[in-house]
Simulated assay, not measured.
Amino acid sequence: MNLANKITIARILLIPLFILFFTEYPLWLTENHRFFGFIQEDGRYIALAVFILASATDKLDGYIARKYNQITNLGKLLDPLADKLLISVALIMMVQSGMVATWIAVVIIAREFVITGLRMVASEQGIALSADKLGKLKMVLQVVAIAAVLLDNYPFQFVTLIQVDEWLMLAAAGLTIYSGIHYLLNNYRLIKLN
């Protein structure tokens, strides 16, 4: 297994760590165990650091794969899967904590299922559908929006009363919808749906 694929797998393995630090634990557990008490106090910031680290590895593994000619079928499968898992888990947990509206998570996750389904159909027909620039921009905006929500609008709260984190999340949802429609329209005609 090459370095690029190892980095992608590391990104997937960071997801349970994100879950561990993001989860809110019951009072009896946080009062009786120092580790869980620590998580209750500072876990969200550690979860944010894990999320940013995992997101940053997306660019790193792609760069290494291209520069050192380490592009493999396993990497083509795992890289987008890792991205979808990371974003989906973060959104689901944020919905559970009341930080993000359910419809936003549903829209973003549903788009990923639809595009993944289209790619699977195309793959069965020997057609490789790669991500476009809008899809990459969408991913960046989703990461920025999730990070802003995890920071609870910090540091924007010091300079404006506008909930910048909420607007970023709305923009991410809007771009997700737009990029999904754009991707479908551009690639649908390439596929025979029999």
Rank of each mutant, 00 (worst) to 15 (best):
A105D: 05
L151A: 06
Y63H: 11
T116G: 12
F22W: 12
R34Q: 12
E166H: 13
G135N: 12
L141W: 03
V149A: 04
F22E: 05
F51P: 02
M139Q: 07
A49Y: 01
I177C: 04
A4D: 10
T176D: 07
L13P: 07
Q70G: 06
D58Q: 03
T160C: 05
I87K: 05
K136D: 03
I146Q: 04
M169V: 08
V89M: 08
I127N: 10
K136P: 04
E124D: 09
Y188W: 11
L170T: 00
F21N: 14
M99I: 14
L170C: 03
Q163Y: 08
K67P: 04
L3E: 00
V50G: 04
S179C: 06
N187T: 12
M139G: 09
L185S: 05
L151W: 01
A54E: 00
D132P: 08
A145C: 03
I52H: 00
W167N: 02
L85A: 12
M93Y: 13
Q157D: 15
R119V: 09
L29G: 08
I146W: 02
A171Q: 05
L137Y: 06
A172V: 01
L78M: 13
L14G: 01
K67T: 15
G98T: 06
E24L: 14
E41I: 14
S130M: 02
R44Y: 07
Q163C: 02
G43L: 10
G180I: 09
S179M: 07
A54L: 03
P80I: 12
L85Q: 09
I19M: 12
A101D: 14
P80F: 06
I39Q: 10
E124A: 03
F36A: 10
G117I: 10
M99D: 13
L20V: 15
N186A: 15
L150V: 13
V143P: 01
R66N: 05
F22L: 14
K76L: 01
P155H: 08
I108P: 05
L20K: 12
F22C: 08
K138L: 06
Q163D: 15
L170Y: 15
